[in-house]
Design a protein around this nucleic acid. Structure first.
Lengths: 128, 128
DNA sequence: TCCTGAATTGACTTTTACGTAAATCATTTA
DNA sequence: TAAATGATTTACGTAAAAGTCAATTCAGGA
């Protein structure tokens, strides 16, 4: 495992701009260490970036991604805090399940659309 | 099946504002009929709205949703057109499959986070 | 007929998530 | 040591997706 990544290494690996990565730092999602002014990204920062981009692909906002990342972290409080955390996890899970249903429905309609196309192709070949 | 829905009926059913629905009309996603100036939404418009909101939940932009809705419609061209349509459907399906993988990964991390919480709770009870 | 509540239009505003440009600083290479 | 290369900061710009507000219009009921 590499110790550090530079910002451009990450931009190349994930296909995002430096502006984007710095923006995520401004928003408090990643906290790379510094050597002078230069940012050094640890493997854990890289994992965070991966999680952020995954959240983005699912249509979560930065604020929502922040929440998701927070629940990943081990809980440190007393009973009440931890129970609250479990409730938040369940909530996020419900959102994900909704997205899953949305995907299944969209997939089904795509299947229907494709079958439709294939049928049309067959018709065209017969009528020629 | 109802013949027409008013705009406010749809806002209530789907929890969106009239502005939102009119915005989708401006973007060419829905085309309700008119009685005078008043919009009348047919069941097919309602289905379209449902599809739009589903796309939104999955993080698709208006432009992408437009594309998706277009591929749902029966293809009317000649062979080349239809084959192109099939290619576009496959592309969208790939995007959906990526989202599906993203959901599964996120779910797994949620599970781990929750187990972590439960473990912490057990520890707290033992140490009391 | 008058009023009230809905709906429409148009314009301006806001939020989110970056893009872009300019100036500065640091480091490596010739 | 000069030049090129890469990173940083600051600040303004922008596109998308609505929100908000004001002025109108219109249909239906008392």
């Amino acid at each position: 495992m590499r110790e550090y990544y530079t910002i451009t290494e990450l931009t190349r690996e994930f296909g995002v701009s430096t502006r984007t990565i710095r923006f995520y730092e401004d928003e408090g999602l990643i906290k790379p260490v510094r050597r002078g002014r230069t940012r050094l990204f640890r493997p854990s920062d890289r994992v965070l970036l991966k999680q952020i981009l995954r959240g983005k692909r699912l249509g979560f906002s930065i604020a929502e991604i922040k929440e998701i990342i927070e629940v990943y972290r081990a809980p440190s409080g007393e009973e009440g805090q931890i129970k609250l955390m479990i409730a938040r996890i369940d909530e996020k899970r419900n959102e994900l399940e909704q997205k899953r249903r949305d995907i299944e429905e969209t997939m089904r309609e795509m299947d229907a659309a494709e079958e439709n196309c294939i049928e049309r192709l067959a018709e065209l070949r017969v009528s020629q």
